[in-house]
Design a binder for these strands. Structure first.
Lengths: 187, 187
DNA sequence: GTCTATAATTTGATAGAC
DNA sequence: GTCTATCAAATTATAGAC
């Protein structure tokens, strides 16, 4: 097993924290260098271009997220509790005054980001919707229920609105309704 | 009546176009100066600090949006058609590859923006939810229906996700469901 | 009001010593 | 790998002429 906490990973961790707070365009190589205690040229050693940093950042975030999805035992929990666990992952990504989901903020900035980064962000959404599709197909089909992409969209939007307003109200209401509407189908 | 298209308003129009595409942090005074055909120092004449520009930009956007809401004749249309018109305003704010709602992108960047700007963005959401509350109270109360803040959140999130993926799919599905769910209540 | 000129700072990025 | 040193460009912002 390779070293768990390399410099490269430390830089990515610092980048994730900063980008999830202020966005990709507002984070500099020098910010990250200071965070991990090196010079900015050393950050360039690991990520020659800022684009490389963005690419690796979203990849890491997506893999971490996927790993947490894999921990959700759908067989044991059943579809509703699994959906609740999914929504819980999003809930833990939102810390008012501190951070939102990485892909919410990168999604909003997408027109100013390199295509390579955008493709990774799109892949995050696609993996999430695919996972959701896996559990929702175990539900009775009902025309009034949100589809996977609608659920992901609603959670990301609620995160952003909650972040500006400064309370979790919008997010919590959205999260609760998504779960409740599906639970209702199984009564 | 004062001049309709002053330099100040031209700058704000250029700023709106750019910010709705790439975000506030990725737009510079020189960008706007070139757009309207002056030097950047002239832009500073109208907006001494970038914060002043952001503040005026969101105020203008909110007022324009409110004016379009005022044009929706709720009495004549009835609540469902009025809700449809509301959703239509959001729909027209999304142009794939070009722009999203100003407050979606500023909301995502909020942690890196001046408080003054954030307060204006929050006010936009509050005015929108207040308008929605006005028409939804004419509907039969139903526990399964989205509240105003949930509707606004869902539309903003769907805009961002659609923007990254590159198709209107997520937005259109969200918009259609919001209207359909309420229409269903009035059958 | 708009310009020239410029200051002060920050940014992404590179060359080369150690 | 990390550093020093540096570059070219861009950024916000101001002073003062016209």
């Amino acid at each position: 097993m390779t070293e768990r906490s390399s410099m490269r990973d430390g830089i990515l961790a610092a980048a994730e924290k900063r980008v999830r707070a202020v966005g990709f365009n507002a984070v500099s190589f020098r910010d990250l260098a200071r965070d991990v205690g090196v010079k900015s040229s050393s950050v360039h050693y690991y990520f020659p271009q800022k684009e490389d940093l963005g690419d690796a950042l979203v990849l890491r975030y997506t893999q971490d997220f996927q790993a947490r999805l894999d921990e959700i035992d759908i067989q044991t929990l059943g579809p509703v509790a699994a959906l609740e666990a999914f929504v819980g992952l999003y809930a833990s990504a939102l810390v008012i005054g501190e951070s939102v989901c990485l892909c919410a903020i990168l999604g909003a900035e997408s027109q100013s980001l390199p295509d390579r980064v955008n493709r990774r962000v799109a892949a995050f959404f696609e993996e999430n919707t695919a996972w959701l599709a896996g559990i929702l197909e175990r539900m009775p089909t009902a025309s009034g229920l949100m589809t996977p992409i609608e659920i992901v969209s609603a959670l990301e939007g609620a995160m952003i609105v909650s972040s500006v307003i400064g309370t979790r109200e919008a997010f919590d209401a959205t999260a609760a309704r998504i779960v409740a509407n599906y639970a209702e189908q199984l009564r």
